[in-house]
């Protein structure tokens, strides 16, 4: 059985042109099978890159990539609800919609769809229900360890997906912390999150790197790197691996590295070294998958 490499949705606020060019490059160069497109974090950003949406989808489809339209993780008002309804109504053979909130799970019920990592799927009961509802693939929450993944993968009624690279999305809020850090409110945020293409770095009072802020979202400061766990994940029958896009890391090279690990052409520790070189100053974590504290790396 083939292993599917998924490029997750861009979580950060990039300039519309950077956003478009990133997806064009994924279409043209990246060794991935699936590319997720769409705003997941903040509905206020979507109007800026929407003019490029059709071009991006066309380019990806032309390059034989499966396109997944990702939807918002937190829906609080009518405008956001409408955007999710509109996306969920798209019924094209070659496009799959990904639910990141239970509202989208409801709207997509009865037809094939994807479930993203922002829907809580912690156990077989929930997985079975969502599969009956039409979920073909389920990207699991980041805090699951190998034991839980193993239990879920056993006789799984849907394809399971695990995020293997990038800053971990840890929380989402009604409040915009980017705006708050700049003394602004969400409603008048001036889109300050565009200043931090990989998130605004957060340190403890004694200078230890800890988290990263992306508007209403909080991510880990460390990048997850599960390349060492790839052989075990494949053994469990988990055949979809998600890479989360970053601006300061060459995501084409990241996809090639993971592909090489999947194909057995690169040893996991060698892959870790390569990713470390690609990611510059970044630190890494893989605690969750080892049933350890999330930020740890071993």
């Amino acid at each position: 059985m083939n292993t599917t490499l998924v490029m997750g949705p861009v979580l950060f606020n990039w300039t519309p042109e950077d956003w478009r060019d990133f997806h064009f490059r994924m279409a043209d160069e990246a060794d991935v099978d699936v590319v997720c497109v769409g705003e997941v974090v903040c509905s206020k950003r979507a109007p800026f890159f929407e003019p490029y949406m059709a071009d991006v989808i066309e380019r990806l489809l032309a390059a034989d990539k499966q396109v997944i339209l990702s939807t918002l993780a937190l829906i609080m008002n009518k405008r956001e609800m409408k955007s999710v309804r509109d996306t969920a109504a798209i019924d094209e053979d070659n496009i799959i919609v990904e639910a990141n909130d239970v509202s989208a799970v409801a709207l997509l019920g009865g037809r094939p769809h994807a479930v993203g990592p922002f829907v809580n799927v912690y156990n077989e009961g929930t997985l079975a229900y969502l599969a009956r509802n039409g979920a073909r693939s389920v990207c699991l929450p980041v805090e699951l360890g190998m034991d839980a993944l193993g239990a879920l993968a056993k006789d799984s009624p849907a394809e399971l997906e695990v995020m293997v690279f990038g800053r971990l999305p840890l929380a989402i809020s009604a409040r915009c912390y980017h705006a708050r850090a700049h003394g602004l409110h969400k409603d008048g945020c001036q889109y300050v999150c565009i200043e931090d293409a990989d998130g605004m770095e957060v340190e403890t009072l004694d200078g230890e790197p800890f988290l990263a802020i992306n508007g209403v979202q909080t991510l880990s400061h460390a990048y997850t790197d599960l390349s060492a766990a790839v052989p075990d994940l494949l053994d469990l029958g988990i055949r979809r691996l998600r890479l989360s896009p970053h601006a300061s890391v060459d995501m084409v090279a990241v996809s090639e590295t993971y592909r090489a690990v999947i194909d057995g052409k690169t040893a996991p520790d060698e892959a870790s070294e390569r990713l470390s070189a690609l990611a510059g100053d970044a630190t890494f974590c893989n605690g969750y998958i080892n049933n350890q504290t999330g930020y740890t790396f071993s």
Binding site: N120, L170, I172, G294
Partner: peptide, 14 residues
């Protein structure tokens, strides 16, 4: 944070 959608605690403490 939106309740039930926060893993900050396990990131720092497990």
């Amino acid at each position: 944070m939106a309740e039930g959608r926060c893993a900050l605690s396990s990131y720092a403490t497990g």
